[in-house]
């Protein structure tokens, strides 16, 4: 029965997204699309940070790669001639469908992740965190300086608004499905084993480096897709869009939701997408000395994260998934059972 429930859920989500796309006003559509994008970001980051135990801070960088790739590839040829006149000829005359552009961005991000991951993931400790933040700086610098492709600090605007609710939720469902299946497969078991005890995993034959690299590369690819979606939702991108703030918020979603729980990441993403929308009103109305309180929602998120680390280090969900929690509610048992993680449900 559970094998069908996943498909059913996906169908319901897509039907809802399609219906809301027709009926809802622009503001709410945008909020909903942002939620879907944030879910993609959080769930994919969770693959490294939660399941494998490598703390990546590279999501802004990979989003930027996806956003710029998709922007340059999908911009109509005539617009390109005006906006990006210095583009190499072949690129200037290329106009690629949205999906292909997203796929290509994902590939590129995966490649970059491979390049960064190869030296760093062989090392123990949290070098990946610094290296990925470094990657963010590198990507920002390249976006600022590679004028012919990126238009530097001015950024690229006037992107086609491809990101509808159906696209956003379609790709969100795809992301969650792929990562859910990956986590509940031999690959996922290897990842969790590496997180629990890297050395012991190696002594049981797990190819530790390869496992860590796989998680990092997949995670980067999905972040890139989210970046592409985001670019075509906002329709304007600049290097400054892809700052530490972005990464930090995704990290907060994963941490608050519960590292190592996909349901948790989804909950965290929804929570932290809605919270700033609510707080934005407070920011502007609770003006201090005539100044709006910009930064308030970020301060709240940071405090929330500090509180989680001290009082509930597992986050909202710990490492449990919603289906398991529901089963446990129905059949409470005394012994501390492990998550039935590998029951191959899809």
């Amino acid at each position: 029965m559970r094998r069908w429930s996943g498909w059913l859920l996906a169908l319901v989500i897509l039907a809802l997204a399609g219906a809301l796309q027709i009926t809802l006003n622009d503001y709410y559509q945008r909020v909903l699309a942002v939620i879907a994008i944030n879910i993609i970001l959080a769930v994919s980051l969770n693959l490294t940070n939660g399941f494998t135990g490598d703390f990546s801070l590279g999501h802004a960088a990979f989003m930027a790669i996806g956003a710029y790739t998709s922007a340059v590839l999908t911009l109509p040829v005539r617009t390109k001639a005006v906006v990006l006149p210095e583009l190499p000829r072949w690129l200037g005359q290329l106009e690629v469908p949205f999906v292909l552009a997203l796929a290509f961005g994902a590939l590129l991000a995966a490649l970059v992740a491979l390049l960064v991951g190869t030296p760093v993931l062989r090392l123990r400790g949290h070098y990946l965190s610094v290296a990925t933040l470094g990657l963010m700086v590198i990507v920002q610098v390249v976006a600022l300086n590679w004028q012919p492709i990126t238009r530097g600090a001015r950024g690229i605007n006037g992107l086609p608004p491809f990101t509808t609710l159906l696209w956003a939720y379609g790709l969100m469902v795809l992301t969650v499905a792929v990562i859910w299946r990956l986590v509940n497969s031999p690959f996922g078991r290897d990842m969790i084993a590496v997180r629990e005890d890297e050395l012991a995993a190696a002594c049981r034959g797990v190819r530790v480096f390869r496992t860590r690299l796989l998680a990092f590369v997949i995670s980067a690819a999905f972040a890139s897709v989210a970046g592409g979606l985001w670019a075509h939702l906002i329709t304007a991108i600049t290097p400054a869009s892809f700052s530490f703030l972005l990464t930090f918020n995704v990290v907060a979603m994963v941490v608050i939701g519960g590292m190592g729980s996909i349901s948790g990441s989804i909950a965290g993403a929804v929570l932290l997408s809605v919270l700033p929308e609510l707080l934005r009103r407070v920011e502007t109305s609770l003006a201090l000395g005539g100044q709006p309180l910009y930064g308030l929602s970020q301060v709240v998120i940071a405090l929330l994260m500090l509180a989680v680390m001290i009082f509930r280090p597992g986050g909202l969900f710990g490492r449990s998934e919603l289906p398991d929690l529901l089963t446990r509610l129905r059949r409470p048992s005394a012994a501390p059972l492990a998550n039935p993680r590998t029951s191959s449900s899809s």
Binding site: L245, V299, A302, L303, M305, M309
Partner: peptide, 10 residues
Amino acid sequence: LITSLAISSL
């Protein structure tokens, strides 16, 4: 590490 990120943001 997470706490240090939060403090930075704070």
